[in-house]
Nucleic acid binder design. Sequence first.
DNA 1: ATAGGGTTAG
Length: 547
Amino acid sequence: MQKVGIHGALYHIMKRLVSPTKNLYPGYLDFLLQKCMKCKALKPGKQVHALLLLTHISFNAKLVGMYASCGNVKSARLVFDEIPNPNVFAVNWMVLASAYNGDFEEAIGYFSLMRDSMKSCNKFTFSIVLKPCVGLLDLKKGKQVHSIVNKMGFESDVSVANALIDMYCKCGHLSYGRRVFDKMVNRDVASWTSMICGYCNTGKIEEAMVLFERIRLEGLEPNDFTWNAMIAGYASRGDTNGAFEIFSRMTGHGLVPDLVTWNAMISGFTQSQRADEAFTLFRAMLVTGVKPNLVTVTGLLPACGLTGSIRRGREIQGWIHRMGLDINVFVGSALIDMYSKCGSVKDARNVFDMIYAKNVASWNAMIGCYGKHGMVDASMELFERMQEEGMQPNEVTFIAVLSACSHGDLVEKGLKIFRSMKETYGVEISKEHYACVVDMLCRSGKMVEAYELVRGMPIEITDSIAGAFFNGCKIHGRRDLAEMMAEERLTMDLKKPGAFVTLSNIYAADGEWHQVENLRNIMKEKNVHKKPGFSWVEKNDTFFEKK
DNA sequence: ATAGGGTTAG
């Protein structure tokens, strides 16, 4: 409606322009720019820009705002650079637009332009500049902004305080966030929700619940953001009952679960390995008429991988295609991983080649896929190519690469990479990396080396490390090393079901049943339980009706 | 004219 209005007004002005006898009022263009900004109408906005140039009228700060609100940072920057003394609106817009664009450093750079003349900051400036601080997870910068906020007396502004709470929580300092929250005199729903999100995202659902129940006592009503945060908190912890309880309370309050609610539920259940419930929820979502988006299917794909349902995975990819959506990095990596888990390297590679702007995770997923299927050479080749293309490997890359070496029996190469991780790539060695290398050494029968490595590890022995090692001992008949290790490390931490099972298998293979019994008793005493396995069944039902 | 909570890969 409003867009039609803008086009109509533009036509009117054009007509005036071609008849030189009539004047063009600057007020018209001003009004139009404002409209374009509000409606995020880039095309009419560009036309107004052209008219401004023709008539030599300059509304540069507003033009910056128009381009920025339309998400066209490049044009916004071009106009901005022409302004000799940009005002606070122009700067705020540039900070905001750069942050939206993911250029956090640049956003903070624009903020710094203003810092010398701090007086020109307004309350908007601070809530805006906290965005890139969160984007960079830069607590130090965030704290600096906080101190400027205090110095300039903006801490009593609810929006600024809320942004500070959010920043502290997201940068990992819940207690600072809580301090800001507690100091607030007037809180609104967003203040409560920001704090609740902080707790929910770090698994502190009990504390979130305490705040959640307090909201009403303060005379405020939780809104859909609040409900969704609580649901996501329970769901991502795998607490089905908790999530459903909030879910039904939400509907009891007359609120209808929206796309975000469903997405939170679905990805929460997938993350906690509850594939069937995730599928059921997805169907329920479709039944209620809420349309899925890329986030939905990104959350659902791991469930296909978990149950080996390649058919469902393919169906989802088909749906993405039919909806005319691009395969972004998130859904791309999820698809690669799903195909990998379902055994189709070819499909995985197809998806990999389709991702236009690959990120580390895309490369990791594909390298991992080749590794899992024993295609070491392809895996190594991709690892090389990734670096040639300027992509920095991260800790996950090395898990993929090392396990590929392990499965492909490339011990020397694997060890070389393992040793170069810290120095060459600056990546910390984690327990997962150790597990890969121990596995690699054991597979190739280098049991003494494996023994030395495990013994010298600066970290606690984990299930998979112990499992790989004891299994190696069993296969290569090194009960001596197994027992030495058991004495040295197992006694330190006894909650290792995997280790117990493999060790007891070693004894069982030699017919030493009294030792097996002995271990079983220790397991019982220490309350160590083996996780039950599950079967991989493909069901025939489909999600989407094909036309 | 500009600001503040929610869902996504390994």
